[in-house]
Simulated assay, not measured.
Amino acid sequence: MLKKLIVIAGLCTITALTGCTKDTGNRDVYEESGNTINVNNKRHELYNEGASRGVRNVSDNYGFVRHQKSPIMNDNTANDGYTALDREQLANIISKYSVNVPNVNDAATLVTDQEVLIAYVTDSKDRNMTADQVKKTAFSVVPRYYHVYVTDNKALMRDVENLANLDSTSRNARHAVTELITQMKKSPQGMRLSDSENENGETPDDMDIKRINMHKR
């Protein structure tokens, strides 16, 4: 009789543990609270699963994201582990990393098919060093053929945001991006990337192509 009770008790314990494990798996480990990310939500956000959500053609859209520095000290939410799958995700990563740069409190990032435009707010006394740091956050995540332009002119932040609403396939959009880049380059751009590339990652060939395209318009 005693042995039978022990066996029954053991089976109950195993059943309870199995139920807990299954329940935990359904919750997918994390609940959304504070800086903790719900894995299911994050997976949907990154991969646009489900046709009912209306998956967009990311190649035909600019990506725009703006971030402000968290008031919580050592809040490293920039390290969320996002994968750069489309332009909006790239803009998200770059803006998050930018506000982790010392003295940068607000950053708006636009990602096109070949450029990254970052407008940020800073109280840095060394504008060129801060520009270099912000610029390098972008170069660390985008494909190498991209060019990066930065500005600490707060007035241009709205212009960067407005570009996100344009149809990226239109000629007007390309002209607007070019014009804004011209204005942004009046701000410090940091140091040259290499002997063959200027501060924005442009080579002499890149500059020639841009001049030719400008004359075509």
Results as ranks from 00 to 15, higher is better:
V7C: 05
A84C: 06
G190S: 07
M184F: 02
K186A: 02
A78E: 12
R66G: 12
D195A: 12
A138K: 03
R53H: 06
G19V: 11
L2A: 14
E179K: 08
R217Q: 05
N105P: 05
E161P: 03
I94C: 13
R66Y: 15
G190N: 05
Q133P: 02
N128D: 12
M214D: 02
C20G: 01
N165L: 08
K136Y: 04
S98R: 01
I93N: 03
D28C: 07
Q68D: 14
S194I: 02
R127A: 12
R211M: 00
Q189M: 01
K69T: 06
K69F: 09
T178Q: 00
N162V: 02
E49T: 12
T18A: 14
D23R: 05
L46V: 14
P143L: 15
A107Y: 04
T36L: 10
S33A: 11
V104T: 01
S70I: 11
S124V: 11
V160M: 06
G25L: 09
A138H: 05
A173E: 01
R56A: 15
I212G: 01
S187Y: 01
T130E: 00
A84I: 07
N41C: 10
A108F: 00
M129H: 10
D206T: 06
N40I: 09
T15A: 13
Q89S: 10
D123Q: 07
I14K: 10
R144D: 11
A155E: 06
Q189R: 00
I94A: 10
A84P: 11
D75V: 13
R43T: 06
A78K: 15
V177A: 01
C20D: 01
K69Q: 05
T15D: 05
N165Q: 12
H67Y: 14
Y146C: 07
E32D: 08
